[in-house]
Every structure is written in structure tokens, then in C-alpha cells.
Amino acid sequence: MTSNGRIGAAQPATPLLEVSNLTVSYQREPVLRAVSFSCPPGAVVGIIGPNGAGKSTLIKAVLGLVPRESGEVRVGGLPVDRARDRIAYVPQREDVDWDFPVTALDVVLMGRYRQVGLFRRPGPRDRALALELLERVGLEGFAQARIGQLSGGQQQRVFVARALAQEADLFFLDEPFVGVDAATERIILELMAQLRRAGRTIVMVNHDLGVVQDHCDLVLLLNGAVVAFGPPGEVFRPDLLRRTYGGRLVAFEQGGSRVVVGP
């Protein structure tokens, strides 16, 4: 690493995602300041922080959805714009128009568009893969349902299936468990574990500290800037959490007991 970002843990392998000195401003107000971190292949990375900490902005800036004022994002050693085929993104639920006339199968097939290529239509093999993925997220029999007719959890699973259809190496999930049922949360967590074992990396924004603690290999504490980055055991410390969340109360489990951090 050439930057002066705080890297909490020694990275064992060549990083799959490398963010250095990323700064983002909205109307000259800095939202993210010199954010640096890197993720190895085969890891689940959680980004946590209070509202307005810039969690979603960080993901969007990494993906090039909002302009970067400075800094660099590399995926597998390449600038992110040249590695888009390795990236899949599951948007926040509120960013989707649920009245749109598409079926669950249509949405999953969108994950194949890049591989299918310009001017061509998805073929039988793409359809077969999409149907198989719908089955994997427990939605067999819902292929022809309009997306708006599904429950919140089912909709989220369709989007996860779409991300899987991209056969990406790097997955970004923005608040994947908001407004979903317990079964969906379990299915998505299980899929994340499978992806991780297959050497894929998942970066997710989450506000549930318990989920992050139990399921993430690395945690980024964010509050405009990086407060800490490392394994949950190292960053879930009262002083660091207090610096992340400022005056707010946060609770998490440590060694089987509940720790509440306050101002």
C-alpha cells in the first residue's frame, strides 16, 4: 500500500479490491475523506457506521456511480472501469421501481446480459442458469411472477439471484437485510458463505452489528473517514465503536455477553 490509510489486518493474498485515498464530496461538502482499504479474495466484508457516515456513498463511489474527487479503486489490479465484468451489485430496495412490468425470471436474466453481449438475446443456457438460480434462492415456481407481486424478501432474493447470474468475483450489497424476512436473511447469508468458500468477495453495507460480527471476516468502521478496518475481533472495541458512532448507543455481543457502548 502506498497510501497512509489505516489497514487493520495484514492481507494474506493479493487484494481483489483495493481502495486508496478515496475522497468524495457533495456540493463541496466532503462526504468521504481519504478512505483506503483492501479486500482479499474469499472474504465477507462489512461496512458499518451511523446514518450519514457515507456507507452507501462509499459503495457508489467504488462502483463509479458517484464522481470521485480523488483516489483510486482497483479490482484485481485493474482500474474498476476495466473490471466491470467481475462486479455484481445488489441495490437498496428503495432504489427499485417495483411496478415495472418484469417477471422474476426477466430480472435474473439481466444478470446474464453482459456475457450475452451486445445485439444478442439470452439463450436457452442463460435461461436454464437463471431458473437454477431462482431455485437456489428458494423461488422455484415464481419465475413468471411479476416482480411487484413478490414479498419484500422474495424480491431481494431475486436480486441476489441476478447478482449470482453475473458470475462475478466481487459482490456489493447495499443493506441487503432491510425489509426482508428471517428466511430470506438466512438464505442470503448461506449463499454469501458459499461464495466466500468459492473465493469470491462480498462487500456489504449493514447496520446490524450482530450480523456483521457473526458473518464478516473484515469490518470497516466508517464515519466520513475510516475509523478502523480489520477482523471483527479487533475492531469491535468500545473505544473504536464510540469514535464511529459518536454520541449514539450501540450494542454488540462479545464473548457471549452483551456490550453496550455509549457516549
Partner: peptide, 14 residues
């Protein structure tokens, strides 16, 4: 279709 349904994901996919 992708552009009209989910412009964000469309942009992410390049």
C-alpha cells in the same frame, strides 16, 4: 430494458 428498470445496476455492469 436494463436501463429503464435498473439504471444503477446497468451502470455498474458497464
Amino acid at each position: 430494458l436494463m436501463w429503464s428498470f435498473d439504471p444503477t445496476a446497468a451502470q455498474v455492469s458497464g
